[in-house]
Amino acid sequence: MWNAIVNVMTKMFDALHNLIIALGVPKHAEGVSYVLAIILFTAIIRLLILPLNIKSTKSNAKMQEIQPEMKKLQAKYANDPQKLQLETSKLMKENNVSMFGGCLPALLPLPILFALYGVFRNITATPGADTSFLFIPDIFAYPKGIGFVSIILAILAALSTYIPSLLLSKSMPQQEGGMNMSTMNIVMSGMMGFMSLQFQPILIIYWITGGIIQLIQTYFLNYLPAVKKKKIEEEKAAQAKIQKAKKSTPKTKKR
């Protein structure tokens, strides 16, 4: 099953690489052509899972809306875990909320990363071809020790993991346990940076590209709507405060 997935992705990637060559990128400049192919490949994958991201955003928004009801249930059935689980599931079903709906889009890039590991392991550069890209001498070379290139790529991989997660957390209301989420983001980013020290540069380029696309999606799907919603709520609160002040102001009697 895994080999079949790798084979399909290999054919897909080869087709994209051939397309890049057909568009005019010199065939001997394999570093550039393969990087362009991986950027195009990542964009296609992210486009395919965009509906899941939109669904995840809606699910997370609904989850935030029912938090007060969930807290009431937690207080009401504090001594009855089985009843609490039953009522919580019922509440989520009534509001069309999935516990795992928000996690799937975030987890999907990882198996794709490991499948690409198998894809690139089988790719051999054309003898004499230029496989460099920017400051990377060879995009297919496995790291030999921890050098300048490895450190820079590890930092970029960690940042491309952390920044979208940070933006997502800022778009969500502050709740108890928020620090745990922040810590989890840091740990996940650190793990990705550490793992990238063992990966081929082209794999890390895939991850960084995906992180940039995820950052853009998070900004428009999560952060921007959250900012607009917060602004509307603040305006309503300000209007309510003005109305309350007007009502509480004593009227002067006419003589």
Rank of each mutant, 00 (worst) to 15 (best):
I5Y: 11
N7Y: 01
K11Y: 08
H17A: 02
A22D: 09
H28P: 01
H28K: 10
I38K: 04
F41H: 04
I45S: 10
L50W: 03
L52Q: 00
L52D: 00
A61I: 08
Q64N: 15
E65G: 11
Q82S: 07
E87T: 12
K90A: 12
K93G: 10
N96H: 14
C103F: 10
I112A: 12
A115Y: 12
F120Q: 13
F120A: 09
F120M: 14
A125L: 01
A125Q: 04
G128L: 05
T131D: 01
S132M: 02
F135P: 03
F140L: 11
F140V: 03
G147R: 09
S150A: 15
I151Q: 10
I151F: 07
L156H: 05
A157D: 15
Y162E: 08
Q175C: 05
Q175M: 14
M184A: 03
N185Q: 02
S189E: 04
M192P: 00
L197G: 09
I204G: 09
I208T: 13
T209N: 08
G210M: 13
Q214F: 00
Q217M: 13
Q217R: 08
T218K: 14
K230P: 02
K231T: 04
E235K: 15
K236S: 02
K241M: 00
K247W: 07
S248P: 08
S248R: 15
T249L: 09
K251P: 14
